[in-house]
């Protein structure tokens, strides 16, 4: 069974259909790029899959749990990071890690071990007791990413994680994403950067609440006879 299974999922707001009968599935360890213009329904779809929003109709399961009846179970198995910084600026690096570990119910010892390991991996051991506000943007982002993985989720949702970041940091950030997917964790990422779309295993493009294209970047380029993902996107969004 796939890690994310979506079937005819629909969400209405009054008479407006934000998400219109979308269906797809994502496998363990896959990186799915979730693309679409602003207002196309990406965020609404993501909120339903993260258990924040109840669908109007259709079916969806995340890590085998139903979005209608088991949102609390889903929350336990997913990680989430958004473009806006998810770390507390007035707390230190270690305090932030302890807080997130705490709300996911990790034991004190596990948190301690994971903190040391995480800081060593990111080469941030010296910054352990620095406040987040004192860290450069790129570091904060990597840290936020790692903190979102602290409780070993099976799916990681990234909502425009690289907005406002320089190209080099973005590239490094994608290295982290690859490494994560390599460990068998599914990555569900929304982005507006078309070069990033090329890095994904598969890409879905939403237009007006519907998924208009879904496939590997290479397949989509062939299907739409385009030279780049940028061209694919513009062609679909204009239609």
């Amino acid at each position: 069974m796939s890690i994310i299974e979506v079937n005819d999922l629909t969400r209405m707001f009054g008479s407006f259909t934000a998400v219109d009968h979308i269906s797809f599935s994502v496998e363990a360890g896959e990186i799915l790029g979730f693309l679409g213009a602003n207002g196309a329904g990406k965020t609404t779809a993501m909120r339903m899959l993260t258990g924040l929003l109840e669908p109007t109709s259709g079916e969806a399961t995340v890590s085998g749990f139903d979005v209608y009846t088991q949102p609390e179970k889903i929350k336990q198995t997913i990680g989430y990071m958004s473009q806006r910084f998810s770390l507390y600026e007035d707390l230190t690096v270690a305090e932030n890690i302890r807080f997130y570990g705490g709300i996911y119910g990790l034991s004190r010892r596990a948190i301690k071990e994971k903190t040391t390991a995480l800081l060593a991996r990111l080469d941030l051991s010296h910054a352990r007791d620095l406040r987040i506000a004192a860290l450069p943007l790129g570091w904060r982002q990597k840290l936020a990413f790692s903190v979102a993985l602290l409780h070993d989720p099976r799916v990681l949702f990234l909502d425009e994680p690289t907005g406002g970041v320089d190209p080099i940091t973005r590239r490094q950030f994608w290295d982290l994403i690859y490494e994560t997917a390599g460990r068998g964790i599914t990555v569900f990422v929304t982005t507006h950067y078309m070069d990033e779309a090329e890095y994904c295993d598969r890409v879905s493009i939403m237009v007006d609440g519907k998924i208009e294209a879904l496939g590997t970047p290479a397949a989509l380029k062939t299907q739409f006879a385009a030279a780049s993902m940028d061209e694919v996107f513009v062609r679909l969004a204009r239609a």
Binding site: T50, Y80, Q83, I103, Y104, G105, F157
Partner: peptide
Amino acid sequence: ERGTMEILLVSPLR
């Protein structure tokens, strides 16, 4: 404002 509320909401906290 800081966007940390989103994180709290997707966490298992009620």
